[in-house]
Design a protein around this nucleic acid. Structure first.
Lengths: 209, 209
DNA sequence: TAAAATACACTGTACGGTGTAGTGTATATT
DNA sequence: AATATACACTACACCGTACAGTGTATTTTA
């Protein structure tokens, strides 16, 4: 009946946990969620199945953690601050470069497909993930507001401008990569410039359009 | 040892076949492919499991047929001919309307997700389907060429223009609908106009920009 | 020395696919 | 008009397997 806090000797289990998560990513991506067996995951993690279940009581919990991991990594990429010492073209190009690098990364494409495939079976999980994702799209909006305040956008509705540019990004790069095998064709550099020019034809000021 | 052709009497099995396909669509959409059991499909089709297997020897065959069915319906929608008696805005708007109607149709969104979810397990099937789908995107290119020949496009690279507009369509409507729960928000009409204006800012001639 | 990990056996169940015996019926043969 | 036959379908039992998840006794490790 003593204070357990004084004599707790917890060990650091984060290494095993990480190795399990990595293994789960690998197996989910190569087999799909439903076909990924917990036995195979534990094997790939060099952990006993029991240990896997001690960390993640249900397969769904493992999936949830994998998705959160993926979201966290994604979020870090898409936050590009406005920099008034660089041209608008250049910075829009950087947003595109990030989008392209995601679209060309098989792991990310696999994770997006994983998310979508799980949509039907675990609608709640999907809804949560989408909600978080929508909330995190604000990097672009912040950038647009800053660009507007800097007098570089020919509209005050920078939110609408964000939506348009965001749509162009997704439609031009991510969506085709998810929908097709993932390999983008070689026209990307030209296409990238064309996307920027199209956007700036509508939203650019005299200096950059 | 007679000629068997003289006494063949085939019957029309298309009704049962259709009912099986419809049932498969329903169950695939509500359960996902892996979780859809052949027993449940046969039950929903009011057919014996044996009959289902007589029509579709493997579960994968059933999936393939469902996907082909869906592609056929999709293809019929996206062919809009150029009409020089109507404005460019109007006709671009029609392309958008088709895209939106697809994006708002839960069955179509479900089928797209089904296709993506199967990407990992049956890559060949997915690749084929995607290739066919890409090939059917040519309605827009034809339209763009006609518009160019009619002097309504400020570029001769109508293929690039098609890609840009197509990207805007997918990124603005289909992709968000697939990625989110499917329900598009209410801004659609404004957004639709903005997409057209953006496109025409770059590609429109004096008359329509 | 106590927490964490392991080895391993075990349960329950669900599912893909097959085999078979039998039914109803439209068509062809006599 | 009576009979035979091919065909589509059903009902149902069955097989093998795969897998999520659990319980426990034992070993490893910090």
């Amino acid at each position: 009946m003593e204070d357990r806090d004084t004599d707790r000797r917890k060990r650091d289990t984060s290494a095993k946990r990480k190795s399990i998560l990595n293994a789960a990513v690998k197996v989910f991506l190569s087999e799909g969620f439903e076909n990924a067996s917990m036995d195979r995951i534990s094997e790939a993690a060099a952990a006993s199945k029991r240990t896997v279940y001690n960390h993640f009581p249900r397969k769904e919990d493992l999936l949830r953690s994998v998705i959160e991991l993926f979201e966290e990594e994604m979020r870090q990429l898409k936050d590009i601050p406005y920099d008034n010492s660089r041209t608008i073209d250049e910075q829009l190009g950087e947003f595109i470069d990030v989008e392209v690098s995601v679209a060309q990364n098989p792991t990310w494409m696999g994770l997006i497909r994983l998310l979508l495939s799980v949509f039907t079976t675990y609608p709640d999980l999907a809804k949560e993930a989408m909600a978080r994702h929508a909330r995190s799209e604000n990097g672009l909006i912040s950038w647009m507001r800053a660009a507007f305040l800097d007098g570089k956008l020919a509209t005050d509705d920078y939110i609408l401008a964000s939506r348009v540019f965001s749509a162009m990004l997704g439609g031009a790069f991510t969506w085709p990569a998810v929908y097709q095998g993932g390999i983008l064709d070689q026209m990307t550099p030209d296409f990238k410039q064309e996307i920027i020019r199209t956007f700036l034809s509508r939203y650019g000021t005299a200096g950059n359009a």
